[in-house]
Design a protein around this nucleic acid. Structure first.
Lengths: 247, 247
DNA sequence: TTACTTAGTGTAAAAAATACACGCTATATT
DNA sequence: AATATAGCGTGTATTTTTTACACTAAGTAA
């Protein structure tokens, strides 16, 4: 059957083998690494995985993956987040690209870093799924283990980023459940900015922006006096964007 | 001569053709694009080249080039700036990575964008050098032509970046000659922020930071009253970094 | 000498940021 | 039922920062 087309047949086989040899290099040149921030039990946490593959097998690392050929960076970040957490519709932001020659021991891999802010606790607990990881855990940012690759650096830059961003944009709300108390909100600011804030001044300023809706509703099931619940009013973003909020 | 090895001969030819087809793709997967800001004659300008190669031959574009395999992104940006302008020791900052699938018509090229601030005019005129460009010009940011690729978007994001940065970091000084007048400094702020500032309030605030050294020296060779020259005191950065400067 | 152009200066009012302490109230305990 | 507990919620005075605003001074050119 192939007698007349021997050449072509062999060439096809060969083509496939060459492509297999070269394309993986191509495919492995970008990756996305994600710093997923979550707020739970008064602590700021990030999602870390325990690697199950070389290099850095058994090390802790930021979740990440390779970018595929037919997806944009943002799409890739969204996909990777979904694969890891099952979550969709989470706002992720690209914040820096790490491209030192030897950052990956197996070749040149440039990594584009994204962060996202997730609501933890409550009914929306994030159950990480992953095939290249043994396990995934939420770990307090003040108590991080040693990380694989240059992930320590990637984390630190992400942390700096949200410290700056929280003064300009209402990102704190993304870490809280839909209904929250002012004390919880203040906790988010305190943990991210890493300093104590004055309760009265905090409340005065926050309420003055007019982006909080008093729900006329109280916490339920807490010991001691229940606090009023608030909701974030998304239509009134603009005012917070325009100016630095100093605490 | 090749009778016994016809297959191998053909396969070799084929291998070369396949590699040529695939490897350039690999090499071309990252590029650096630079937004080089300069301040001259009271105007904020950027360096644009007129392309002399396909794709987008004859279009205006941001200067940029491919990242080589043995250099980090920062090194690559520094090299590309040097090749284009002959300048060294210029601080460049990476600010965003553009990776839409179809941003480059000839394949997947992810571009890491950097900006730099340069002193124009005086004796330090930048003479751009380039081999893939017909010419390079400094063009007022308020009067930009249509740009190749997604370079309009890259420029806009860079512009936003320096608008925000100038409120936190003393980048204005990098656009001015070593000795400058307060009016020139105010001009830089006005052009970048795109609004008029009050002269007295501007001077009061700037001087209050204590980062300006009065040189007890006047402008020379100007029509009309000569202004006092100042110099930026680099040791006193910190104060400006810590807080937003509002104008 | 005059006309012109830019340099250089101060104050008052408004707004924003800061510092600071105690009574309230819902729950848990006895 | 009384009491202890622990987080909730509130106001004012002071200081600092921001804003608005207009004229005189000095040097150049004709």
């Amino acid at each position: 059957m192939f007698t007349g087309n021997k050449y072509i047949y062999l060439l096809l086989i060969f083509k496939i083998s060459v492509l297999k040899e070269v394309l993986p290099k191509f495919n492995s040149t970008f990756s996305i690494d994600c710093v997923l921030f979550g707020f739970d039990e008064g602590e700021l946490k990030i999602l870390l995985i325990e690697r199950n593959e070389e290099p850095f097998k058994d090390w802790w690392a930021l979740p990440g993956n390779l970018v595929e050929e037919n997806e944009s960076l943002d799409q890739s970040a969204t996909r990777i987040l979904h694969e890891l957490t099952g979550l969709s519709d989470i706002y992720m932001e690209q914040y820096y690209t790490f491209g030192d020659v030897n950052r990956h021991p197996q070749g040149r891999v440039v990594s584009i870093a994204y962060y996202a802010l997730l609501r933890l606790g409550g009914d929306k607990v994030v159950k990480p799924i992953s095939n290249y990881a043994k396990q995934a855990y939420w770990i307090n940012v003040k108590d991080l283990p040693k990380l694989a690759f240059d992930h320590q650096q990637i984390f630190e830059k992400g942390m700096e980023k949200i410290m700056r961003r929280i003064k300009h944009q209402p990102i704190a709300f993304e870490l809280l459940p839909e209904k929250f108390t002012l004390t919880q909100l203040q906790n988010v600011y305190e943990v991210i900015l890493n300093k104590k804030l004055d309760k009265r001044n905090f409340r005065k300023k926050m309420l003055s922006f007019g982006v909080l809706r008093d729900l006329n509703e109280k916490q339920y099931g807490v010991s001691f006096r229940a606090a009023t619940l608030y909701k974030f009013d998304k239509r009134k973003y603009a005012k917070l964007f325009s100016k630095e909020i100093s605490f």
